[in-house]
Design a binder for these strands. Structure first.
Length: 571
DNA sequence: GCCGTTTTCGGCCCGACTGTTTTCAGTCG
């Protein structure tokens, strides 16, 4: 049983306990366990088998027993009993904004509502408004939420959100007296999808800023606007909330709205034991009752005796503990990157020449660039034949003699066939500087088959890097059923690097697998998969994912000087 | 239900908004 399935059952238990009106700390205990499972870098089934469940933070005796029963038998008796106490489907009502546990129970038990459609009908004929504690206004609010939910029922990918937020920021950035304009929330933490965008800033005249913000041309609807905050819908249906405070309060504000929720809960729980109370307004010494303000996040964390915690790792793992001991790793930064190995040219499906891409890479400050055009595999656009690869090799040799200041490495993105063989002959691969292998077809093979297929490719002495290991496209294509633990183990054994593909709709390897790869000592590579010079900038998404996986510069092959890279590649 | 630099028992984050319950519960982030 997969971690996600176990997490889903525990989440449902938490929801049902909430509806039941159970002790809220018990509910929180389940929610914390769910989060731990989502961050877990090993298979929970393995932890059950090895009796190591209690090692997971937030999993105690009772939840460990439940996970064990669930994994071993496929069922959980107390869960079945809990479900039987309530009308079927009741917990799905909680997904509708404005409906919490009390309202869900009321709707399900009094009106027999199971779905959004039932609910809509009950609102329209007045049954919802007639319920105790609800009224006409509440019913209409729920109706409105249902409609917006139908228009936009999904989170949007990080890449799209970032483009929009940068547009907003660039239009406000020169506004007189406005400072510190920064996106917060899941966007700042580089989560792969975001629900809405929270913008924070400080200003001499906050109201003038919210007015200008609400009047921006890309705003399609103003939901609310007051003296210090405004909420708008921008083109594409995305909600953007802006909040402006005085300059000396920015640190605590940004910290609060960056989250994550669990990180803030953990932080505040710890603060209580230190006699401090934290909020978006600052820190209050509980005894003295006096509020201290913080202009920067660094000062806010320092007041609690903590090192600065980078946003990407504020996820409620063990970052606070490590910050208290001043033992947080120094995460990778963009300036650490010295090159890119996943770049296409117009020899296959890229849009630019080798020379132009090399110069663009040089303009990024890189020491080296590795081309990885497609091989002639089945179904791949303009894949290179053996003969064309040899021609490209000669061209790269010539370019290295004429272009100075950057070293061009020859390579291929060779296709891993359905049986795990590579679609280019070994003799040719041996002539290349760097060979990247990837699956592009038959992505629906079962777990055993696709895992064995990838491992077979890793075992080829010529393969240096495995690219976009699961083939997922965020919100478009599910990841292949790869047993990532087995693949990472094979990568470690064979000394093959694993790519963090930086295309914003791939981000594959994902953050939790980056964390696991590091634990196992697998070398990682950030590849942009650029088909145009503008794509080289997608590096920042790869950096974000790497940082979410706690990666340091030393974990990433393309932060290393050329000589060390060549040594890794066996040249 | 979990957990321990006060604690194996007694704690467990903080604040804002909304609607309707004349004093606050429910929901959200």
């Amino acid at each position: 049983m997969r971690n996600a399935e176990v997490a889903r059952v525990l989440q449902d238990i938490a929801d049902l306990l909430e509806i039941k009106g159970e002790n809220r700390f018990k509910i929180r205990a389940y929610q914390r366990a769910v989060l731990s499972l989502e961050h877990l870098t090993e298979e929970v089934a393995r932890l059950v088998a090895e009796n190591r469940l209690r090692k997971i933070s937030g999993v105690g005796e009772a939840i460990a027993a439940k996970i064990t029963e669930l994994v071993n038998t496929g069922h959980l008796r107390c869960y079945e009993e809990l479900k039987a106490e309530f009308p079927e489907g009741i917990s799905t009502l909680l997904e509708i904004p404005g409906i919490g546990p009390k309202t869900a129970l009321l709707l399900a038990s009094e009106l027999g509502i199971k779905t959004a459609t039932d609910l809509e009908a009950a609102i329209d004929d007045g049954r919802v408004a007639a319920l105790p504690r609800l009224g006409k206004k509440t019913a209409q609010n729920i109706r409105h939420h249902l409609e917006t939910l139908r228009r936009k029922d999904r989170r949007i990918p990080l890449g799209e959100a970032l483009t929009i937020v940068e547009e907003v920021v660039s239009r406000l950035t020169d506004f007189p007296g406005l400072k510190n304009l920064t996106p917060a929330g899941s966007l700042r933490r580089f989560q792969e999808t975001v629900g809405d965008i929270d913008l924070m800033g400080t200003a001499d005249d906050p109201e003038a800023v919210t007015r200008a913000f609400a009047g921006l041309p890309l705003v399609s609807e103003v939901l609310a606007r007051g003296p210090t905050k405004a909420s708008v819908i921008v083109a594409g249906g995305l909600q953007v909330d802006l909040r402006i405070v005085a300059h000396d309060e920015f640190g605590s504000l940004l910290q609060h709205f960056t989250g994550s929720k669990q990180h803030n809960i953990d932080l505040r729980e710890r603060a209580v034991h230190l006699g401090l109370s934290l909020s978006e307004y600052g820190i209050t010494e509980i005894k003295a009752g006096k509020l201290e303000k913080f202009a920067t996040e660094e000062a806010f964390y320092a007041r609690q005796g903590l090192s600065y915690i980078p946003p990407e790792i504020r996820e409620g793992r063990d970052e606070i503990e490590l910050a208290a001991a001043h033992k947080l790793p120094i995460l990778l930064v963009r300036e650490d990157i010295r090159g890119d190995f996943h770049v296409h040219s117009d020899w296959s499906d890229g849009r630019e020449s080798l020379a132009d891409m090399a110069r663009a890479a040089q303009a990024c400050g890189y020491e080296y660039i590795g081309f990885s055009d497609h091989s002639a595999g089945r179904g791949i656009a303009h894949g290179l034949s053996v003969e064309r690869v040899r021609q490209q090799l000669a061209e790269i040799k010539r370019l290295n003699e004429t272009i100075s200041g950057i070293r061009i490495l020859s390579g291929l993105e060779v296709d891993i066939r359905a049986d795990g063989s590579l679609d280019m002959p070994d003799e040719l691969l041996a002539e290349l500087d760097i060979v990247t292998a990837a699956v592009h077809s038959s992505l629906n093979q079962d777990e055993a088959k696709i895992t064995a297929r990838i491992i077979k490719a890793l075992e080829s002495p010529h393969v240096d890097v495995l690219a976009h290991p699961t083939g997922r496209l965020i919100q478009q294509r599910e990841p292949a059923a790869v047993d990532m633990e087995a693949v990472l183990e094979a990568a470690r054994r064979t000394g093959t690097a694993i790519e963090i593909n930086a295309m914003p709709d791939r981000l594959d390897l994902k953050d939790t697998h980056v964390y696991r790869a590091r634990e196992l000592g697998v070398r990682l590579v950030i590849g942009t998969d650029s088909h145009h010079r503008d794509h080289l900038d997608n590096l920042r998404f790869g950096i974000g994912v790497a940082r979410r996986g706690w990666a340091q510069a030393a974990d990433i092959l393309n932060t290393r000087p050329l000589a060390e890279v060549m040594e890794f590649l066996g040249h």
